[in-house]
């Protein structure tokens, strides 16, 4: 069977976080090991653009809870 793995798995800083946490594995099965061509991080990377660290594969950005709780 042809590999469906994202070729950037070894170097993507978000992948180890997703891989090691059971609750987050859905990202791995949906994107990293399947539709990686649809991953927003992968798209930016192959387009030669900067990949924000907080960008999720579906194009959403992580929201830092600290900022809202401090106010």
């Amino acid at each position: 069977m042809a590999s469906q793995d994202c070729p950037h798995m070894g170097t993507c800083p978000m992948y180890p976080v997703i891989k090691l946490s059971g609750s987050l594995k859905v990202w791995q099965t949906r994107y990293c090991q399947a539709a990686y061509a649809e991953c927003a991080r992968h798209k930016l990377s192959v387009a030669g653009q900067r990949v924000p660290q907080t960008l999720m594969p579906n194009g959403a950005y992580l929201k830092l809870a600290r900022a809202s709780s401090a106010e």
């Binding site: 976080v17 997703i18 946490s21 609750s23 987050l24 859905v26 990202w27 907080t54 999720m56 959403a60 992580l62 929201k63 830092l64 809870a65 600290r66």
Partner: peptide, 12 residues
């Protein structure tokens, strides 16, 4: 903070 933010993004 990271895990909380990623769980929130995952749930969303």
């Amino acid at each position: 903070e990271l895990i909380a933010a990623m769980r929130a993004a995952t749930a969303e």
